[in-house]
């Protein structure tokens, strides 16, 4: 069985709860996580990612408000029956590119240099 993974990067200027929210929303929106699938318990995911439990709890709250998941006391957090669909690939790439450029800025790399890195990687 292949498990999906989520990643948190401290060098990414996006707050960890938002990094996590975006990845889980993508997994749900693209159908990787199906309706009814259980998300990891807050404490477990927080411990695995080295985050505070409150950070993961905030992610789950945001996902619940957006209709991606439903939480029930004692029953954990599960993917909602009819979650919103994922953004179009173009919009998702726009988001990823914006995050990449923001990270480059934190590292002191100019946008044109960052773009050249992408170009070099794309050409293999």
């Amino acid at each position: 069985m292949t498990l999906s993974t989520v990643t948190v990067d401290d060098l990414d200027p996006t707050p960890p709860f938002e990094q996590l929210r975006r990845q889980l929303a993508d997994l749900i929106g693209n159908g990787v996580l199906a309706p009814g699938d259980r998300l990891p318990p807050v404490r477990q995911l927080a411990a695995d990612l080295g985050l505070a439990a409150g950070t993961v709890a905030r992610t789950y709250r945001e996902l619940e408000h957006a209709g991606y998941v439903r939480s029930r006391r004692g029953g954990g957090t599960r993917v909602a029956a009819a979650p919103p669909e994922a953004a179009t690939p173009e919009a998702a790439l726009d988001d990823a590119a914006r995050a990449y450029l923001a990270r480059a800025r934190v590292l002191g790399v100019a946008p044109d240099v960052a773009a050249r890195v992408v170009d070099r990687l794309a050409r293999g």
Binding site: L3, T5, V6, T7, P40, G50
Partner: peptide, 13 residues
Amino acid sequence: RVGARRSAAVETR
């Protein structure tokens, strides 16, 4: 040990 970039499986143990 935790590094700057950390990953976790989406699973319920």
